[in-house]
Design a protein around this nucleic acid. Structure first.
Lengths: 106, 106
DNA sequence: AGTTTATATGAAGGATAATACATATGAAGT
DNA sequence: ACTTCATATGTATTATCCTTCATATAAACT
């Protein structure tokens, strides 16, 4: 396998290719939240949210600020915002179904 | 699971979260190629390249033009170019290791 | 129509990641 | 120091995706 930019990108996209993590980022783009607030707003268990926050944190897609016992997670708006713009633009211009193509019901 | 933008994005990123497909896009950003040319330049089997081109095509990350027996694949430069810029920017600004963090040797 | 070349598809096996449950850490307040 | 609250981690099962080999399609040329 030839190596290049694709190698740099790989972890980046693997990290994003997960519904829980995408939903997490979506929530955090609206407002910063603690883990439990995230869990509640996502309807997921706390441990699952924690598990998925870890890779997001490692790649600096999110960052933390402490608030007493809580840890408030913030989205990296620069990267995530830019990314969402690309996706939206692609969906508008190149997806016949506006981004809903081949989507399996889950 | 709450549904929203994350749902639109999911297939998008799943599609990109694959080293073969990323390498394919990287090659096609340089120049359009047939399947066999791609296979050779990637050092992969033809069937594997074909398998991986399929989802790229479905999401319109690439498109085809016929040339006799060959099918020349083109990258969607608008989307892929914008995407790579976001990744590069993120790597520069937010990755301590410039995008090489936690990369396993393969 | 048959042959060759180019590409696509099917299906099985193995690898990898996601989820859920249980438990551990760790900070704050008493 | 003990308790409580908030979050993180470990592990096993399950689900998902990737790859490979074999085969099918399909166009162009004879």
């Amino acid at each position: 396998m030839k190596k290049g930019l694709s190698e740099t990108c790989y972890r980046f996209f693997v990290n994003l290719a997960n519904p829980t993590r995408l939903a997490t980022l979506e929530q955090l783009m609206k407002k910063p939240m603690s883990v439990n607030e995230l869990a509640e707003s996502l309807g997921q268990e706390q441990s699952m949210v924690s598990h998925n926050l870890k890779p997001l944190l490692e790649c600096n897609f999110v960052y933390i600020e402490r608030d007493g016992k809580k840890r408030i997670y913030f989205a990296n708006k620069e990267t995530i915002g830019a990314l969402l713009k690309v996706v939206e633009n692609h969906a508008q211009n190149f997806c016949p179904t506006g981004g809903k193509c081949h989507l399996k019901e889950s």
